Amino acid sequence: MASFRVARRMLCAAAEPAAAPAPSSRWERLKNSKAGVWCRGLVSDYKDACKEMVVGARERPVKASVYMTLLGGAWACFHTKPDQSSFEGALLECSNQLALLSPWIRNGTSDGHVQSLVKLRNEGRLRHASLGLLSLVYSASYDPDTTLYEAQCSNVSDPWWQFPKRVLDVGFAGRWWILDSKMQDYDVNAEEFKNLPAHMQVTSPPSVQEVERNERLHKESWLPLTVEDEEKETKAVDRKEERISEESQMKPLKE
């Protein structure tokens, strides 16, 4: 019996070195898994790419500055891109500006463009599309809630090649360019001056001397009159009255 116990202890002692190692931690198992290996490889690739970018920027600073400028411009255009609510706000503001003017003063081009946009908006036919760096506003044939067959069936809808004709405005860099261009000189009605001579239809900006002279006269008009100025004005008025009376007396003699 004792010899059996000794043999069992010898076998257990010999089996202890060959026993399985202690189980590793959960973090070690996660690192050695397939997902962990893939993530480590991805981080290593991004690390190498960043190092190459830094080295390339040092070697070619002009090229790197051009790329950074393009990326910064694209980022700015993306974040300043106007949306549909901004277009509706700009449209209502332009409509209010025109409503404050008399119909005889409004620019026909501005008024017609804004009125057509307001009509499409009231009919629910204005659409907005975001293209990343810019936005488009275009017109649709029907309201989205319309249940007509022509409005629901894609086979009879407008073909895609007619889309450029339906574009109404382009939003870029925080502005709606077509609407702004149509609203230039919205308070000038060109029809009022079409019967004038050609040299009166074209106006040129005043020169620096004319602007200074007008400003000087405007400032002098607010100054109080002195006694000498009043005497000069009265004398000028008296001379004018005398001249008028003399002319009126000379007319019967000539007759």
Results as ranks from 00 to 15, higher is better:
S95P: 09
L98H: 05
P252C: 06
H199T: 07
P164H: 01
D111N: 12
E28W: 07
L168M: 13
G174C: 13
K119E: 00
L148Y: 07
G41H: 11
L223M: 07
V167T: 14
V237Y: 03
R8M: 10
Q249C: 08
A90Q: 08
L131G: 01
L223R: 01
K194I: 02
L168A: 10
M10Y: 05
E241P: 01
L179M: 14
A198C: 10
L70H: 06
W38Y: 05
L134C: 06
A7R: 12
R127V: 02
P224L: 02
E150L: 08
K165S: 09
E246A: 00
K240P: 10
C12N: 13
D45R: 12
S181A: 15
K63M: 10
Q84C: 04
R216M: 03
S141Q: 06
G112S: 14
E93H: 04
R29S: 15
T147Y: 03
A140E: 09
H199W: 06
S102A: 00
E28D: 08
M10E: 07
H113P: 02
L217Y: 00
D158V: 15
V62Y: 09
W160I: 11
E28P: 03
V167Y: 06
T69V: 11
F87A: 04
K165M: 05
R127K: 10
G171M: 00
S130G: 12
P103E: 00
L30E: 15
G56I: 01
D158H: 06
A19T: 08
P61W: 01
E242Y: 10
R175D: 15
C12K: 14
L11T: 01
A19H: 05
P144R: 00
S154K: 03
C50P: 01
D180S: 15
L196D: 13
D143H: 15
A129P: 03
S44R: 03
S110K: 07
M200T: 08
W75K: 12
S154P: 13
E215H: 08
E231C: 01
M10I: 14
Y149P: 02
G174F: 09
L92S: 12
R106W: 05
N107F: 02
